[in-house]
Amino acid sequence: MSDLVDLQSPHEIGHEMRDEIRRISDHLRRRRQVRSTIMVALCGVALAVTAVPLLLLLFELFHRGLPVVLHTGFYTQLPQTPSLVAPNVTGGVSNAIIGSIVLSAYAAVMAIPVGVLAGVYLAESDSKLATMLRIIAQTMAGAPSILMGLFAFSFVVRALHIGFSAIAGSFALAVLMLPVIVISSEIAVRGVPNTLREAGLALGAKPHKVSMRIVLPAAVTGIVTGIILAVSRAIGETAPVLLVIGGGYINSWKPLNPVSALPLSIYENAKSQWPSLRTQVWGIALVLVVFVFILSLSARIWASRKQRAR
């Protein structure tokens, strides 16, 4: 005990000392408050810079798009070219709505199984092949989307002699979706605690059964979120489908027929000389945004329900 420093108890500290401490702490507190106020203000400005363009965009979208989408003909009719006698007859975009659904559905069917399995493989394997695949996926994720269009054009449209078709567009979109699904699946699978894998192995399960029956179900929320993200991105892409789907002006669900797509209609109508068609663009954009919104919202609700069920 003797070698411990004898601490002064508070009442033995002199008045001067106590005043000095209070002065310094007041000073420091004021400085902290000033800094804090500045930082909060900066954050507010940053938030405004982010939110204002977004809100303006949404306002414009609804303001101009809502009158267009409130007509049922917009969804059920085929597009018509306005004429001098009827400059406001634009028809609808049923072909583009069907086309977008067809394109993303076929693309999802192609990309999901491959992407998810590749993601599981990347997460569960440490081989050189896995490392290489991961680098490829990451590079592909950053590649400009027109590249996928070019690839689909030269491969599906030309080399396979399939021609301009929904399947060519789906192929381009599938290639676009693939890296997103692969990477998000890998992350989701890696997030599954190792003790679950060990529990499976310790029950005599073979490694592939552990992957498919334990790890994959446990990672499903993350995987589905990634898929929805990929689909949402693909459905709004213009560049990859521009070169290959042929812009069909009929309602077609068949994979080998040319189809249209919502982003493609936007692109074409926006170039039009007719003001009525240019107005219709906002309606198409609104439909597209609502599409994507519903997709991501349903994914969120599903994921949170799933999480709560655990």
Binding site: L196, A199, A202, G204, A205, I214, A218, R310
Partner: peptide, 30 residues
């Protein structure tokens, strides 16, 4: 591993399975 079972430090039932499915998971895997 079917003859030498294991129980881990932290309870680790399979989160996506029911109580019943957990209990018989080893048999199903095999």
């Amino acid at each position: 591993r079917t003859r030498v079972g294991m129980v881990f430090q932290r309870p680790n039932p399979f989160p996506t399975m029911s109580i019943y499915d957990n209990a018989i998971s080893g048999l199903r895997f095999n």
